[in-house]
Design a protein around this nucleic acid. Sequence first.
DNA 1: GTAAGCGGTTACCCAAAGGTAAGTAGTTAC
DNA 2: GTAACTACTTACCTTTGGGTAACCGCTTAC
Lengths: 129, 129
Amino acid sequence: MLQLQTISAEWEACTALSAVQDALYVLNGKWKLPIIVALSSGNKRFNELQKTVKGIAAKVLSHELKELELNGFVIRHVYTSTPVTIEYELTEYSNSLGQVVDALRIWGTMHREKIRSQLRQPKAVPETT
Amino acid sequence: MLQLQTISAEWEACTALSAVQDALYVLNGKWKLPIIVALSSGNKRFNELQKTVKGIAAKVLSHELKELELNGFVIRHVYTSTPVTIEYELTEYSNSLGQVVDALRIWGTMHREKIRSQLRQPKAVPETT
DNA sequence: GTAAGCGGTTACCCAAAGGTAAGTAGTTAC
DNA sequence: GTAACTACTTACCTTTGGGTAACCGCTTAC
């Protein structure tokens, strides 16, 4: 039953599993990717970010920004104008998440469409007797 | 300052943001995508899954499988052999996550490489103990 | 009879994620 | 002097994700 191809497939699946888990470990939580998406269209200040990323609390945003900065995803620019303004900018490294964000965006769009169409057609329940 | 292009970019970023949040809403937690990856190399039984997805507790696996089934990502097959065996299979719908999984796998691999190379060349850290 | 495996469920617990609201410090505006 | 804006921080609380371990019913093996 266990052929070379099967073993190889299992091995590949296993490394894929670890890699996906590594990625999820860094990108955990509801907010990291949304914040990155929000910043992908241009630098933003704290309050701008809070308005863009709907539903996020100041405390959470502050916390997430610190983590993102620590992990090298964003840079915090302090402009000593009056009043002091602070801008958050994506690093080159977070641009490497482009494929991930794109895939999620495309899938999310499709998924929403699917859910909406299911609501319209509640279910053609096939008798499973 | 606000030009049409800027407005357009902001609009696109906003829809992208919602789409990504929609996707994350369904794929929340540490385990859903890893389970899907584990099943992507072939159907598996409960205990096989638990061995493949390292670190997951039976309770959590059970819970996640129920959610995945409810959301139409996996099918639970009951074979009335003796003893009864139960297999989990991915649906066609979860294959639509292929791009997402691929992107995460590639990024995760790259990210791990980056972290490892940072460990080899610590950034001018005074402490080496 | 007892152990061990399958496919879970249940009760209990903890830590972290996340939310609410108030406060802080500095500046500008009225 | 008081209100409002910037960019947060702090204290407090609730929710939930996740972990441990025991247990259930069933069957096979010794």
